[in-house]
Computed example of a mutant assay.
Amino acid sequence: MKIVHCSDLHLGKRVSGNKDYVNKRYRDFFIAFATFVDKVRELKPDICIIAGDIFDKKEINPDILSKTEYLFKQLRDNVKKEIIAIEGNHDNARILEESWLEYLQEQNILKVFYYNKDFEEKNYLKIDDVNFYPVGYPGFMIDEALTKLSEKLNPNEKNIVIVHTGISGGTNTLPGLVSTSILDLFKDKAIYIAGGHIHSFTTYPKEKPYFFVSGSLEFSNIQNEKSDKKGFILFDTDTLDYEFIEIKHRKRIKKDFSYTNFSDLENEFENFVKNLNLTDEEILVISMSVNNNDYINIENLENIAEKNGALKTYILIKNILNIGDSDESSSDLSIEEIEKNLINTWNISEIENFSKNFIRLKELFSNNDKDSFLELFDKTLEVNGDDN
């Protein structure tokens, strides 16, 4: 049986920026999914797995639904047996009465599964000689959920697990990530675990992997995602062979820039950008170290880059603030201002939103509003995670 596995489509995503950039990026996610559908048309797989985050938000408008339904109908026509999808954290509908994923299921386009307390019994289907266990998005319950499922699996059968998670560790602080010690429980019990949530291609273990994250089809958090490769996985349940198949997507260029003469900074930066030979379609992500207390007008640099061929430019400033060097420097600051200055040192891409969320999280925690706290905490980490 041939299976294709993709994840994190984030259809309908709206980014901030000028009108041209916003519209292009809105279309990018549909174009990437359409490219995937074209590849599926060539491959004619038996099964298509989508491991969460079909939509970028729980609420969608008619244009998003229309484009999504059109593409999914084409996908359905080119998958021999079944499209199996799970809910991710972005399209998680626990606060809504109904999910738009249910609508797609009602149109007989796909089968969708959600994480619930009886998932190990209810979230199951058998196709030919393969058992499929679509877990969904367990969030903070990930270790408990997968441990419970691992105890159920028969190692003498072909088992495939589908779960919206990636591997925890390093600097990645996203909620809902799984440890390798939990994944080790599935050795010799699952021939394939289809993951998501993280937007870069990942496999585990290094030798003879059985856990796979396909990554997103398009950049969702373009400033922080590690890999420039986007695509999906083709897997054979008989031979256990797999292949990562790349697809075209919006081009991102990541560069480091340093200046030699602060008084001539803008000219140096303009020459730096001109040498990149941009075509008005690339997104630039520039990491820039600042000397001493030099003030950098980021908006001016972004405008220079965009006048010289960048579709959009993000400039990430390193070491712009030093906290704690002088008691005098912070003696007149409010607690909120001190917190914001501290957050500035964490190399976070959306400082203003993160600072506001940080204050709100403290309020929710003080008021013991657990549900609202966890929802906002999840959302805050998603925006600033390395790959989500």
Rank of each mutant, 00 (worst) to 15 (best):
A305E: 01
Y210N: 02
S287W: 13
N357M: 04
I127G: 04
Y124I: 03
N357P: 04
N224Y: 01
P209T: 05
K19F: 07
S334C: 00
G309K: 02
D63P: 02
S355D: 03
S349Y: 11
N292G: 10
I162C: 03
V213I: 14
S7V: 03
K254L: 12
N78L: 02
S7W: 00
T260S: 10
F365R: 07
M1W: 07
D378S: 11
V290G: 01
K312I: 09
E225M: 10
L276A: 01
D129C: 11
V37A: 08
L71W: 04
F30R: 06
S200V: 12
K73W: 00
I162A: 01
L65D: 09
E218W: 10
G195I: 13
N384A: 04
S181M: 11
M141Q: 10
V79W: 03
D46I: 07
E120S: 14
L364E: 06
V135Y: 05
K312E: 15
R41G: 04
S227C: 06
S227L: 09
F272P: 10
G88I: 13
V37G: 07
V213C: 09
I54Q: 00
V383T: 14
N154T: 10
F201H: 11
R76C: 09
F30G: 08
T35W: 01
K379Y: 11
